[in-house]
């Protein structure tokens, strides 16, 4: 197992979101899709199959306060690696970069919070050099890829 995992880093202003690259099988640029789904749309057609669509800004807004959705330019679609029988696509208009961090720089949440926040998709954190917090998300888990509306129903 690699001890320097690759992550996609997305800048959310006061914090960063890290997405493990290993969770995704493919990235599709918005320019490659003929019919772009509208922002907020909970599903898209991926190779002719209806697939759950999670907008990252929506997902983050449900986790952390004061996130303004970015909807300009072309989105990127992160195709979540298939788990069980379900497939999902994570979409964002935000720019991102692919980085590697030593594994030991990622820290699991304190034990008392781990289970609950893990269900929401928050797996670990990293304190960056500027004392800025980076949240490592697992948006591919079945519970955490639910849309905001779905999660409100189950709350």
């Amino acid at each position: 197992m690699a001890d320097t995992p690759e992550v996609f880093l997305l800048d959310y202003g006061r914090f960063d979101i890290l997405l493990p690259a290993g969770d995704f099988g493919e990235l599709i640029s918005g320019s490659e899709l003929k019919d772009l789904p509208e922002y907020g749309c909970p599903a898209c057609l991926l190779r002719g199959r209806e697939t759950r669509l999670v907008w990252l800004d929506n997902f983050v807004s449900h986790l952390l306060p004061a996130v303004e959705a970015e909807t300009s330019g072309l989105p990127t679609f992160f195709v979540v690696r298939e788990r069980r029988t379900e497939e999902a696509v994570l979409a964002t208009y935000r720019s991102f970069e692919l980085l590697t961090f030593p594994l030991h720089e990622l820290k699991l949440l304190p034990a008392g919070l781990r289970k609950r926040l893990g269900l929401l998709g928050l797996v670990a954190v990293r304190f960056s050099t500027a004392d800025r917090l980076q949240y490592l998300l697992d948006v591919s888990s079945s519970g955490s890829t639910a849309t905001g509306r779905d999660r409100e129903k189950t709350a």
């Binding site: 197992m1 995992p5 690759e6 493990p20 594994l103 699991l108 670990a124 591919s140």
Partner: peptide, 15 residues
């Protein structure tokens, strides 16, 4: 590396 693998590796080293 997947998030599940990261979680597992961090758990193993945590002790």
């Amino acid at each position: 590396m997947k998030s599940s693998e990261i979680k597992e590796a961090l758990s193993a080293s945590e002790g």
